[in-house]
């Protein structure tokens, strides 16, 4: 039975009709047309769908849209402000932390959440934090470098 769900996404109040089985990522991609959040697996492991819900990173493929009712959601599209990249996005660009770009939105959203929790993460802590974000292109080398630099820039 379709129901209406309302939340704030990237600072804007939005609402839409969904089924209970509609995933948050489907609502974001299909209803809102924000296609920067991706789907790369069906077992909640790849992390290409990571967004922030009420300030915390979550896998939007493993949350129902109805569970996000009233929440504050931030997607990759909401990270840059006034046409200026977020320091973490800038660090990924500077350090070649992306290749095909598919894992990148989830990677960046996870990285931003890491720095919220740990202002000066070590290489080990960064690698550990990325357990839920798969990348097939970069071998993680430059992602790790980018996140370390992004953390410094966010300080």
């Amino acid at each position: 039975m379709p129901t209406t769900v309302s939340m704030t996404v990237n600072g804007k109040k939005v609402s839409g009709s969904v089924e209970p089985r509609t995933l948050l990522v489907q609502f974001i991609r299909e209803t809102l047309g924000l296609t920067g959040t991706h789907v790369g697996c069906d077992t909640s492991q790849c992390g290409t769908c990571v967004v922030h819900v009420d300030g915390k990173s979550v896998k939007s493929c493993t949350m129902l849209a109805v569970q996000a009712e009233g929440s504050d959601v931030l997607t990759i599209e909401g990270l840059a402000k006034d046409g200026k990249l977020h320091p973490m996005q800038e660090a990924f660009r500077e350090h070649h932390g992306l290749q095909c770009g598919f894992c990148t939105p989830g990677m960046v959203m996870s990285a931003v959440d890491l720095v919220k929790n740990n202002k000066n993460p070590s290489e080990h802590e960064i690698r550990d934090w990325l357990e839920g974000n798969l990348c097939r292109c970069t071998g993680y080398h430059n992602i790790v470098k980018a996140i370390a630099a992004g953390a410094k820039a966010m300080a």
């Binding site: 991609r29 924000l34 296609t35 920067g36 959040t37 991706h38 789907v39 997607t75 990759i76 599209e77 990270l79 840059a80 990249l85 996005q89 990924f92 660009r93 500077e94 070649h96 992306l98 095909c100 770009g101 598919f102 990148t104 939105p105 960046v108």
Partner: peptide, 19 residues
């Protein structure tokens, strides 16, 4: 040279087939 394609990928503006 820093990559020219990165701007769209970093902001979620890339267009993949499913998009």
């Amino acid at each position: 040279v820093r990559r020219r394609e990165d701007g769209r990928f970093l902001t979620g503006s890339g267009t993949y087939t499913d998009d």
